[in-house]
Design a protein around this nucleic acid. Structure first.
Lengths: 195, 195
DNA sequence: GTCTATATACCGATAGAC
DNA sequence: GTCTATCGGTATATAGAC
């Protein structure tokens, strides 16, 4: 199954989504035009509408792609980290590992949701499900730790801290600030799970 | 001084800035057009360029206006709160008081900076000075408290927490989440300043 | 200072040849 | 599936009458 390595060049539709994902992150959804995406992919603007009827359809595909990559990342953390505490640490370390992109473009999830919220975009709810993936996964880790506070509150708080760091990192572009806040989140986690 | 109450109708330029301030907050800078602002103010698009040469000039004026209102707010906190701890509490309470707007449009400062950062806008630095106003003021309060940690780190952390709450409040639109995080920030402040 | 009219450019989206 | 050509709409910005 799926062993036909003769499907190599990656279908045009997938290449569009791949490039749109990056361009939406780097420049924002509204600010990224068909012309920009088409130029990056190397196709004409006209060919575009053969794969996607409207721009919103591309955004929906990008969100779906990000949901898949998020799910894969969460699964990888479950593989490399044995305990729930270590898995929560993986989430915190993600901020440190992606600090270069975060300082340049912010958080991919948070910045997209913020833009869609301002424009009252119909896909705000869909983009919010990516936050929901993290929230649910974080809550599950806290639930396994039998902590004193509500697991969902702790999940939301950890999510909020990561978003706050992302916004200020994007503004100040200070890697030392990110390092300090990441260390602070690790200390918070230790204080929260120890009992 | 300044007793000439004969300058009542507020000059057109000021009315433009006033409406642009609100519209940029509610809908974002790039997404807000001249036509929208002109309609709100009640003038024609043509009249617009008599007061502002380019759109960036309006943004610069809006940022200046927000800097003034921020400075006024910080001064008011210094009046109503006697101790540095109470003043820091005023900052935290601001999140609770503005929760309705925050849930609808996010943080005025954070959301503007995030948008400008994505577009590599030349006025990102100018908008960042509003964050700097809060940062400096918060740091000064912590300095007066002789806390164990670096006052600037504490200022940035408090700023980051408020931004994180704003982003998630904007996505989930959950007033109870805001209330919980505000209470959590107050507890954090108490734990940080007590010694 | 305010208006109408318009220039110029880009946007998303469509039509149709190949 | 990919292309060229183009439509209709809107954006910022300008010119000039009043």
């Amino acid at each position: 199954m799926d062993d036909n390595s003769t499907a190599p060049p990656l279908r045009t539709r997938d290449r569009i989504v791949e490039h749109a994902d990056r361009l939406f992150y780097e420049g924002g959804y509204d600010h990224t035009s068909f012309a920009t995406i088409a130029a990056e992919v190397g196709i004409s603007r006209g060919n575009f509408h053969h794969h996607f009827k409207a721009k919103d359809d591309i955004l929906a595909a990008v969100i779906e792609r990000r949901r898949n990559s998020t799910a894969a990342m969460l699964r990888s953390w479950e593989r490399v980290a044995a305990t729930p505490t270590d898995r929560l640490g993986c989430f915190i370390d993600m901020v440190a590992e992606n600090r270069q992109d975060i300082m340049r473009f912010g958080c991919p999830v948070g910045s997209l949701c913020s833009e869609l919220a301002k424009q009252e975009h119909s896909l705000l709810g869909a983009s919010g499900t990516i936050f929901e993936q993290f929230r649910t996964w974080l809550r599950e880790q806290f639930e396994q730790l039998d902590v004193a506070q509500e697991p969902d509150d702790l999940a939301m708080h950890l999510l909020a801290m990561s978003q706050g760091v992302a916004v200020l990192a994007n503004v100040y572009k200070d890697p030392e600030f990110v390092a300090r806040e990441v260390a602070r989140m690790h200390r918070w986690l230790d204080d929260t799970v120890e009992r």
